[in-house]
């Protein structure tokens, strides 16, 4: 049996306030992400202005704008470009701010969303 279940847990607040990832590289020296809350599953897609701006973009931004002609998540951007998740998150937030990519974030909170959960169950049931 989990041996410590009767013990008091450490103060949870000390966990809650720990900052998320703080990437310092590739972000113009900025020390805070533009939007540190961007979820790693958020969908990213290049916009028309992004495609137009592509030739003039610096290399990491250009890679993302090129890649996201097909919509994908922040996590996929990171994996395909071999970037740390935190770095990809900042770069995507940069590009979204400039209007070069669109971002679709999850609709939160989900805990009450019975219709949504039922849709996911139906979707999984169709997998053979």
């Amino acid at each position: 049996m989990r041996p410590y279940l009767d013990a008091d847990f450490p103060d949870e607040e000390s966990h809650v306030d720990v900052s998320p990832l703080r990437p310092y590289v590739l972000t113009d020296g900025r020390t805070e992400p533009v939007d540190r809350t961007l979820e790693i599953e958020a969908q990213v897609m290049t916009t028309g202005p992004g495609t137009d701006a592509l030739p003039g973009l610096a290399f990491e931004h250009r890679d993302i704008v090129g890649l996201c002609a097909v919509p994908m998540s922040v996590a996929e951007v990171a994996a395909r470009l071999k970037l740390h998740i935190g770095v990809a998150r900042v770069l995507v937030a940069d590009l979204a701010e400039k209007g070069y990519v669109r971002v679709r974030r999850p609709s939160l909170p989900l805990a009450h969303d019975i219709d949504l959960i039922e849709r996911v169950i139906r979707g999984l049931e169709s997998i053979r």
Partner: peptide, 16 residues
């Protein structure tokens, strides 16, 4: 404003 019509079709992401 957005010249890419298919951008409207971005799916809602969920995770487990």
């Amino acid at each position: 404003m957005d010249s890419n019509p298919s951008a409207k079709a971005l799916p809602v992401p969920l995770k487990i």
